[in-house]
Design a protein around this nucleic acid. Sequence first.
DNA 1: GGATTTCTCCCCACTTTTCCCCACAAGTGG
DNA 2: CCACTTGTGGGGAAAAGTGGGGAGAAATCC
Lengths: 147, 147
Amino acid sequence: MAGFKGQAEYSIDSKGRIAIPAKMRNALNPEAKSTFTITRGFERCIFLYPLDTWLGIESEISALNTYNRQARDFVRSILMWAEEMVLDAQGRISIPKPLAEFAGITDKGLVIGALDHVEIWNPDSFAAHMNEQADDYETLAERVMGL
Amino acid sequence: MAGFKGQAEYSIDSKGRIAIPAKMRNALNPEAKSTFTITRGFERCIFLYPLDTWLGIESEISALNTYNRQARDFVRSILMWAEEMVLDAQGRISIPKPLAEFAGITDKGLVIGALDHVEIWNPDSFAAHMNEQADDYETLAERVMGL
DNA sequence: GGATTTCTCCCCACTTTTCCCCACAAGTGG
DNA sequence: CCACTTGTGGGGAAAAGTGGGGAGAAATCC
């Protein structure tokens, strides 16, 4: 099963909706029933997990030891932002206000595929984030993929 | 199975399409179903992986630990440019706009076979890249291939 | 508690892009 | 020399992205 790939800069309409690229919609497993769980991501962006993938994450989370304070805080941090959203007939989802604020998203959103999930960024934040990254692509590839 | 070889300078039409040389199309494994995954390469060029080869890369990527920030950034850097493209009836693929911009490709493309993948360069960039390379062919060979 | 306002979501309409298809010219091989 | 493949170009139907109206639910305010 091919994962999510690609990028697209789409506009957010006055109702806070953003289109999900057709290529990514088509990569959705039928079991996901056009549903994404939207939550905060790492770095200042939003994560979208297909429903079927999300269920796996939920069971990982529920396996955590809740007698550990750090685990509790982690669970709170993920779940307080999470929301199940179904694509509308035009293939869009509406971004919950708290998440839009968190990611600093107003009128433009950069949608990128990241294999098991989709990310939505404020285009400017994303450019800034990539600039902060000290190593260039070639170095990163060598380090991460090993040699 | 024979790998990709050879070079060809082809034109990009007004719709951003470029032909893949017949020799390389014939080198495609039937399993690839005439499909390439197109993504950014190292240096300023575009990589084309046959679908079957790409799936192997994708599973390597998915094995990375995404709780590590460098790994996350690497996954973003490679996948945001990636796109699955099927050859049209004329044996062409259309180059996604972001990639064309990245590689500085406008009206001409230099297509090079590189064993497990195909590369597309702006012909001028490629010439410049080869000039930057201080060592000549013989020296390079000695260093890379050992003794 | 009821009326008003706000918000959410479903639906329809318009514009742009994508991609499928056909056509032609140049090159290749028998 | 002719048939066939290969590279190049473009028209047109279908899909994708964008915007907004309006019914119903939820929240708010008197």
